[in-house]
Design a protein around this nucleic acid. Sequence first.
DNA 1: CGCGACGTTGATTTGCCTCAACGATTGTGG
DNA 2: CCACAATCGTTGAGGCAAATCAACGTCGCG
Lengths: 194, 194
Amino acid sequence: MPEFDQIKQSIGKYINLTDDEFGRFTRCLERWVLKKKQVLLAEGEVCRHVFFVNRGCLRYFYAVDGEERIGQFFTENDWLTEYESFLTQRPATQTFEALEPVDLWALSYQNLQNLYSAIPKMERFGRLIAEQNFIGVKRRYSPLLNESPEERYLHLIKTRPGLLQRVPQHYLASFLGIKPESLSRIRKRLHQNR
Amino acid sequence: MPEFDQIKQSIGKYINLTDDEFGRFTRCLERWVLKKKQVLLAEGEVCRHVFFVNRGCLRYFYAVDGEERIGQFFTENDWLTEYESFLTQRPATQTFEALEPVDLWALSYQNLQNLYSAIPKMERFGRLIAEQNFIGVKRRYSPLLNESPEERYLHLIKTRPGLLQRVPQHYLASFLGIKPESLSRIRKRLHQNR
DNA sequence: CGCGACGTTGATTTGCCTCAACGATTGTGG
DNA sequence: CCACAATCGTTGAGGCAAATCAACGTCGCG
């Protein structure tokens, strides 16, 4: 099943499933396809799935007095969900949108709960994913609080160079917590001092 | 065992343990006591325990170019650990310190891993705690990014009024991500417009 | 071709920080 | 128990980095 290669490799980082167990897992998956600009999950809806990105790029954003702020980008082999809404089954505060044509695996809340019961190892997988998410959210927020805009931009260049080619600059600015004009000036400064 | 009442109640929010299982759990606990200003875990050390606060108040802080910033306060019935260091067993980036005489239960990394194996339900507890931590860290950081200093202060008053009586004002300022002078001015403004 | 979205640049504003000084309170050692 | 030092909260003056407001050229697309 080459279609499951990516997700198999991703899970393999956390737990080892037998072929039987992995088969049971994959039978819970649905294939979802999105066009560019299509919304995967809108603010106010309850998030009923976790997703695995086979192909494409998405963002999530939320509104702060009318203005939208980008929380995160997702690309190939990322796991993606509105975690708080998914865990509590209450309305999402964020909107997820495709920035390109997107190809996902979707695993429903109910199917995941069933897998937790049917395959005890999956409970561990859920814990490890939650732990990774915790570390991820801290690493995402920490620079926003403790580093200067310029440092954050330089860090972005180093750690996610692919994004610069892939998403508009004013989205990057929002992701970095600054205005497009400010990012433009930062880039200008950096090029001059080159 | 009245000494275990608090922690029993806290665990009961997540999973139901039999008396046998709970006994097995409590035999893994050590009692730790700290004096005021005593350090529970220093930056650079590996965090080898999770703690449950029976009594007292602690903070954790980290340094950003020489200046210390407070990340969180902990009080009675809170679970506490340097989660990233604990999960990865690598050096902590934060220091935990008692602000008052403190009384804790300590559960070691090894004992927790053993409990995960011995009591399958504990794996679920670990997952739920990790999920709660994820939600907690998002709720902690989100206002720092999306609200004004004044809004953050007002929010603190509403959600954790006890802290205002318990910790010095310049600690609160650091927790709110501002300078002591700024917090002083915010309070002055609010009292005038009262 | 014409429109809208995007990135850039300049001028100005603004909110918090920095620096400095000062009383009040705390706590500490003789 | 007192005297003195350190810590803490407050207030004022000035600075600064990013936001805001505005204008303009370019590019992509219908």
